[in-house]
Amino acid sequence: MEITLGTVLAFLGAALAVIFPGIGSGIGVGWVGQAASGVVTEDPDKFGQTLLLQALPGTQGIYGFLSAFMIMLKIGVLGGKLVPLPWHTGMLFFLAALPVAMNCWWTAYAQAKTSMACVNIAAKRPEEIGKALTFPAMVETYAVLSFLASLLLIFGIPVE
């Protein structure tokens, strides 16, 4: 079977969609985890609330993975029949993966920092945790938007 340049570019796109959001989410979850452990050391009752906050920057990694999954479906990696793509189609896959790769990467950091700030709210005013969750959730909007954009772009790419 022949591997075309298009296939390589599509693979690159899928890889980027996993790598960058994955790094972002991994580091983000790590940071929030550190902060959460600080609170839980002094006050073990706060485990549930802080776990929720820790999970928030983790969604970006999932979006990245889902985008990559869609690319894999489209180019037939999962069906076992790899479609030989012309280079420009491959380039489209690569470009379609960029929004999720870049946005989810950086929004994961931003969300992690907001979550850490909110861990402090959980420490100081546990009764306000509902409000506190709103702030990191706002960051999620932009991760979701980029994920949607990437998905729509991937769906829109014609593959013979």
Partner: peptide
């Protein structure tokens, strides 16, 4: 500054006391 993540969160609890 991120190295202080754990410490700062813990301080926020300690501050309450």
């Amino acid at each position: 500054d991120m190295r202080f993540a754990h410490a700062v969160a813990r301080i926020r609890v300690l501050e309450q006391r």
